[in-house]
Each structure stands twice: as structure tokens, then as C-alpha cells.
Design a protein around this nucleic acid. Structure first.
Lengths: 232, 232
DNA sequence: CGGCGCATCGGTGTATGCAATTATGCCTGA
DNA sequence: TCAGGCATAATTGCATACACCGATGCGCCG
């Protein structure tokens, strides 16, 4: 996993609230905490051996990430996005990734291009061995390399956040028969386009990769045409 | 300001922390609190007539929005984005708005199209009277109508958040001579494309509107080509 | 027998106090 | 005069205590 330097993330020592937030996020993303589970402050405090205060802070930190939903005076629960919301997020993620790929095609340094190539090559082995777990992890790293290559930290933040929120609902996605192989083939097309510096092609390839071609796009917009939004 | 209904946002009664957070955000966006200003917990508590606890929560709520930066054990300050980060955010915002415009062109209901038309027409008057303040507010509403018309709540959230973070740095943007007129003309092109259902044109128009044409795009990517990211 | 009101209870929102860490100023020594 | 170290002070992190709100269950009345 390419973690560049040790200190670009200013975390001298994580505070208790951060630790709890990280653990909760981990548990939610991994699916250990299922959507709808109520998150009792006192209970979590006992579990983590602290008082309620850090727990509260952790929950408040997680709320804006969308992983938990907190209603004033009514407590917090693991977020339960409806299908509409999930579709929205997939659509947005496809575009964010497309943008990242396009920027990467234009802005990646030679070193970064080599790193992407290397990561892609490493994943070929996992496909051959049908190692889903390893591929899943490597896949995250692959897309992260794209974000880094885009040289746009804000874009990376948004994409990473969106990806995280969708993670619990994509867990089984790679389990489908030969999904690994197709995923890897699509990656190949993306890498090629990026190495060629073809931003438009890279963006198009990644939209396909996420599973949203232009047609799906229009269809989804059509499906959402009915008035009234699910949320403000 | 078109605030649709009163209760889609589940805020039965804002808690103190939320109130303080809202006020701080308002002050920062409006420029009353300048970047770099230290936000002392005790001081804010005295100012708002509460204890430190709600203030702490407010600061923690604001941190993920990017309006304030909190360092563990070192307090909070009003965020001070460097120019690189601002450029990144402008780039992302242009794409988010382009996506919203494209979706709106496909998905807007007739009622929403009429509403957009009406808003656009109303803004013509403000241009004629050179009422910058009114135009600024109406402009926010205009873009918000686009987000609503896209029928994608998540996209709307991201766009709104990004727009808010950039607000302090766009304050003087409309002050330029005849900027109102040009802005309104660009809006006209956007509205036309949307009414025609031409998603691609709408997206292109809005990129121009934000001030980032394809060329600028490539140039910006070029400028950012040097290795090393400002943040993780 | 069913609907309504009320009391109890669980849980969050807020206040206050203490401990730990960081920042600041002074003093000492070269 | 300036650099370095130490003590003091200020501020944050965390724990505890209390008050208020919302939810659930029972009993009463119609």
C-alpha cells in the first residue's frame, strides 16, 4: 500500500473521540454494524471504556460523513440510505471518478504512471488466483492512485468519502462470477487511456467501469423525473 | 429565497450547538470572521452565553465542512485555504455544477422549468438596477434551483457545501464592472440549453459560467503537474 | 372494549470540575 | 546580546452531574 510519507496527515496523537470515530466507521463500512442499529451513547462509552463525552464527539464527527444519522434529542443510528439515495450517490461517484481519471490522464507524473501500471500488474495475479479479498483491497488502492494522480486533494476527499459511504453496499459486488476478470479488463482500458493522455477516453472508460454508461445515465434521470426530492 | 416547505429538514428545534454552528458558519461565509482567526472555546462560550460544551460540539460540526480547522489539543481557527486548494475547489465546483445542469436538462419537471425561468427573469430587473446585493442572493437561489432540478440530493449537498466554502473568496467577484450583465447573459444560455433538454450544452455553458473552459482546465492540470500534493 | 391522558423511564443536551498538554515568559549562562 | 531551559499560565480533553425531552406502558374514562 503506497503510503508516501508518514506525516502529511497531521495526527500527532489521535484523541479518544477520533479513535472511537475511526473504529465506528470501520465497523460500519465493514458491515459489522448494520444500518438502523441504534448507537447508544452510554453503551458505546462503556464498550470503549470512556465517558459519554468522547463518544458524543465521535458521533458528531461521523454525522457529516453520512455513515450515521443523528436526530436531535432522538439519538444516533447507523445510516440507512434508501435505494434512491444510493442511486444518487453511485451517479455522483461515477462522475467524480471520471473527473479524477481525466485529470490523471493530463497531470500524472511519470513516477505516478509507473506506480499505476505496477498496481495494475499486481492485480492481474490476484485475478488469476481468484483472491477476492486481496483484489478488493488492491482495488481501493488502485482508485486511490487515480485520486492522487489527479493532483486535486479536494476531489480526492469527495471521491473517497463517497466511496466509503457506498462501501457497505458494494461488498458483494466483486463476488459475481468473473467480476474480477471484467473489472481488471476495464482497469486495463482505463490505464491505457491515461497513459495515452486521453482524458476523454479515460473518463468514458471509468464511467463504464462504475457501471453507468450514458444510456444508464439518461434512464436514471428519467426514473428520477417525478417531482419531490427525498431530502433537501 | 425559495424555501420550499418548512419540515423536509428534520429540525424540530435547533439545539444550542447547532445554533452556534450556524452562526459561526454565517459569520465566516459572510467574511465577518477572517481566515486565521483563533476560535477560543471559552471566549465563544461567554459570547453566546452558554458553557463550553455546545461550543465544542459546534466547532466539531464545522470542522468537516472545512470552514474551520481544528488541531487536536491546539484549538480551532477559521480555515485558511491556500490558493492551490482554492483552485482545486473551483475546478470541482465547476464540474459539480455542470453535472447538475446536465441532469436538470434531462430531469426537470415543467413546473421546475417554469420556476427557473421565473427566477431568471426576476434577476434581469436586478441587473438593470445594478442591485448587487439582491443579485447575489438571487444568484444563490438560481443555482439552488439547478440543484433541485437535478433531482439528486447528494449532488446538491456536495455542490452546496463546496459553494459555501468558496463563498468568502467570491464575495467581490460580482463587483467587477458589468459582471452582473455578463453573469445574467451566461445564465440565459444555461436556461436555454436546459429548456431545450440539451444536457451537453448546459454542462458546457455552466463551465463557462464558472469561468473554467476546457483550455483553462488543461492549463490548471498542467500547473498542478508538479509532484506532491498539498494534502493527503 | 377501545381511545385518551398521565406517570415513569430511558436517553440526550448542557453545565461544571479536574487533569493533561501545550504555549509563553522569564531567568540563567555562555 | 542571544540561545537554551524551566516554571508558570492558559487552553483543551475528558469525566461527572444535573435538567429536560421524548418514548413507552398502564390506568382511567367514555
Amino acid at each position: 500500500m503506497p503510503r508516501s510519507r508518514a506525516s502529511p496527515t497531521p495526527k500527532p496523537r489521535p484523541t479518544r473521540a477520533e479513535a472511537i470515530a475511526a473504529k465506528l466507521a470501520e465497523d460500519i463500512v465493514a458491515g459489522r454494524l448494520k444500518p438502523g442499529t441504534p448507537l447508544d451513547e452510554a453503551g458505546l462509552a462503556r464498550t470503549h471504556g470512556t465517558s459519554r463525552t468522547p463518544v458524543r464527539e465521535a458521533l458528531r464527527q461521523l454525522a457529516p460523513t453520512g455513515l450515521v444519522q443523528v436526530s436531535p434529542r432522538r439519538g444516533a443510528v447507523v445510516a440507512i440510505p434508501d435505494t434512491t439515495q444510493l442511486a444518487e450517490m453511485f451517479l455522483v461517484m461515477a462522475e467524480l471518478e471520471a473527473m479524477a481519471a481525466a485529470l490523471a490522464a493530463l497531470a500524472m507524473t511519470p513516477e505516478e504512471r509507473r506506480g499505476l501500471e505496477r498496481q495494475h500488474a499486481a492485480m492481474a495475479v490476484m485475478v488469476r488466483e481468484a483472491d477476492v479479498a486481496a483484489y478488493r483491497a488492491a482495488n481501493v488502492a488502485f482508485h486511490h492512485l487515480l485520486y492522487l494522480g489527479a493532483h486535486n486533494g479536494y476531489l480526492g476527499e469527495l471521491a473517497t468519502a463517497t466511496r466509503r459511504r457506498l462501501a457497505p453496499f458494494r461488498a458483494a459486488q466483486l463476488e459475481a462470477p468473473d467480476r474480477l476478470g471484467r473489472s481488471h479488463a476495464e482497469h486495463a482500458a482505463i490505464v491505457t487511456a491515461i497513459q495515452r493522455g486521453d482524458a476523454a477516453a479515460a473518463a468514458a472508460m471509468i464511467r463504464t467501469h462504475i457501471g453507468l454508461t450514458g444510456q444508464t445515465w439518461a434512464a436514471m434521470a428519467e426514473a428520477l423525473r417525478r417531482p419531490g426530492l427525498p431530502e433537501k
